[in-house]
């Protein structure tokens, strides 16, 4: 059983909704990325999504694009991200880490080389935004070494295709609750609830919901029908400008604390 599967099984057994924060690796500070990851866990993260900076993040909104630009300007690359995960694993053997990003950095690094290094570092899954199911043969070397490929599902996904995604899902299925970019504002809870209920009935894996979740209230609304909630842009925005490890930890705690409480109060 993978670390991701174990974590979701434990959440289910405890009747809890998972909290999955997303941060861009190396933002706000490459030097304190490790501190940031531990702070996320201390504030109640069940899994961590670590964004691999990319120059052309087509599916992300301005907040995450700017975080990527800041990290790239500081020289952050895939090699750094893998090294940070390896160091994180020295202290935390249980919290699953998922790398989220785009195909080009992985292809240029080399698929096989990335697969080997990611597993060695203690990465559990990859969410490659621009690699839909149809192009997933590309990622076979990653799956072969045990990395779970997290797939996205969207409100625009047609029923026949959704069935395929539910069948192919590993780790968890990430339902993008809004047919737009990350950080977008609109969200109709009822619509999402209906779709997610349907997906949960068919998917072989748990369903996490993200895109547009920004605070305790919106997280709690989703917690009623999802296995986990993903929070990205709002957190990245909150961290922007933090300089010290302590400042980062304080901001993470202030932001995730109420969300964790709201999720657990259900």
């Amino acid at each position: 059983m993978s670390r991701i599967d174990r974590r979701f099984a434990a959440l289910k057994a405890a009747g809890r909704t998972g909290l999955i924060p997303f941060v861009t690796a190396g933002d706000p500070s490459p030097a304190h990325n490790l501190a940031l990851m531990h702070a996320l866990v201390d504030a109640g993260a069940d899994l961590i999504e670590l964004g691999v900076p990319f120059s052309d993040p087509m599916a992300d909104g301005p907040v995450i694009q700017h975080a990527s630009e800041r990290a790239i300007a500081k020289g952050v690359g895939l090699g750094d991200v893998l090294a940070w995960v390896a160091t994180f694993r020295e202290r935390d053997k249980d919290t699953p880490v998922i790398l989220m990003g785009y195909l080009n950095p992985i292809e240029i690094h080399g698929f096989q080389r990335f697969a080997n290094e990611a597993v060695a570092a203690g990465v559990d899954g990859v969410l490659v935004v621009d690699c839909p199911l149809e192009e997933s043969a590309t990622l076979a070397p990653l799956r072969a070494v045990g990395l779970q490929q997290i797939l996205l599902a969207a409100p625009t996904t047609a029923p026949a295709r959704m069935a395929k995604l539910c069948e192919a899902a590993a780790g968890f299925l990430y339902y993008v609750s809004f047919a737009g970019i990350t950080g977008a504002g609109r969200l109709s809870t009822q619509d999402i609830a209906a779709r997610v209920a349907d997906i949960r009935a068919h998917a072989k894996s748990p369903v996490a919901v993200g895109f547009g979740v920004k605070d305790a209230q919106s997280a709690k609304a989703i917690a009623g029908f999802a296995d986990a909630v993903v929070i990205g842009s709002a957190l990245v925005e909150r961290l922007d400008g933090a300089i010290t490890a302590q400042d980062i930890a304080v901001r993470v705690g202030e932001f995730l604390g109420p969300i964790r409480t709201a999720l657990d109060a259900r």
Partner: peptide, 19 residues
């Protein structure tokens, strides 16, 4: 599949697959 040999394809986010 929209491929020209090894090139082309549809390397996009899930939200674009339906459109």
């Amino acid at each position: 599949q929209g491929r020209f040999g090894d090139f082309g394809g549809q390397y996009v986010a899930e939200t674009l697959m339906a459109p």
